[in-house]
């Protein structure tokens, strides 16, 4: 009696183990080598990090589900390069936790949208896309201008990013909140320190046109304006 029972149990466990083994092979074989990929892809020692404000903007981009309609991955196809700019390199998203490559273009690709439009255009467009592009089918995000950005825990965000491998320094973490405010309020904060920490190319402006508060609109526009600008790897210098 005990014996039959034992055999029956063994059979279902064998089946379960066989399923795990057979199914795991594909993933292991494909994904494991990618973790040594640093040896084979292009390097960019000057890769800049997202400033706290840009990271906050990126989190708004995630929160609102922008990735459902906008890709951030220009494929190696001629028409995409002609339309959106140089094709995306792996190094450009090496600090993107998570990546936002996307899978659908209900709207255009945004991998290199930074600098293509003015801050005013972005703010107006996000408030009501049809004010600037009458045929647009994008949703309105007018509450972003009216919502103050949560800055008090940005240091924790940077620390979590450092845990997963983004090289934020102690100074960056300690000054995360001040840096976010400084980036959106030129003139009355320590811009020098911000630029020293994140590089001379850091864009310091009142992104939403309202210098009084740091709104979610400031953050998302700051993020959109830096897309495609963190790395110089695609610039044809020296080639």
């Amino acid at each position: 009696m005990f014996k039959t029972h034992y055999r029956i149990e063994r059979k279902s466990i064998t089946l379960a183990i066989a399923i795990i083994v057979v199914a795991s092979i594909g993933g292991l074989m494909e994904i494991a080598p990618l973790f040594t990929i640093d040896e084979t892809v292009e390097h960019d020692p000057n890769m800049r990090l997202y400033t706290p404000l840009e990271l906050a903007g990126r989190n708004i981009y995630i929160r609102e589900g922008c990735y459902a309609c906008h890709s951030q991955m220009i494929r190696t196809l001629q028409d995409e390069v002609d339309r959106y700019g140089p094709y995306s390199l792996a190094v450009e998203s090496k600090y993107d936790h998570p990546m936002l490559w996307g899978s659908k273009r209900t709207g255009p690709d945004l991998a290199r949208v930074g600098g293509k439009y003015s801050d005013q255009w972005h703010t107006a467009h996000l408030n009501n896309p049809r004010d600037v592009v009458p045929q647009s089918i994008m949703p309105r995000y007018d509450w972003l201008s009216q919502t103050e950005l949560r800055t008090q825990d940005l240091g924790d965000h940077l620390r979590a990013q450092r845990t997963v491998g983004v090289p934020y320094t102690d100074a960056m973490i300690a000054n995360a909140r001040a840096d976010a405010i400084a980036q959106a309020s030129p003139g009355d904060a320590d811009e020098e320190a911000l630029a020293n920490r994140y590089g001379k190319a850091t864009q310091i402006r009142t992104f939403d046109g309202d210098p009084r508060t740091v709104s979610e609109m400031d953050a998302i526009v700051a993020y959109l304006q830096v897309l495609g600008k963190l790395s110089d790897a695609t610039q044809p210098k020296g080639k």
């Binding site: 074989m29 494909e30 494991a32 080598p33 040594t36 990929i37």
Partner: peptide, 8 residues
């Protein structure tokens, strides 16, 4: 990397 790819 190349070794891992070959093994794969």
């Amino acid at each position: 990397h190349n070794l891992l790819v070959a093994v794969s």
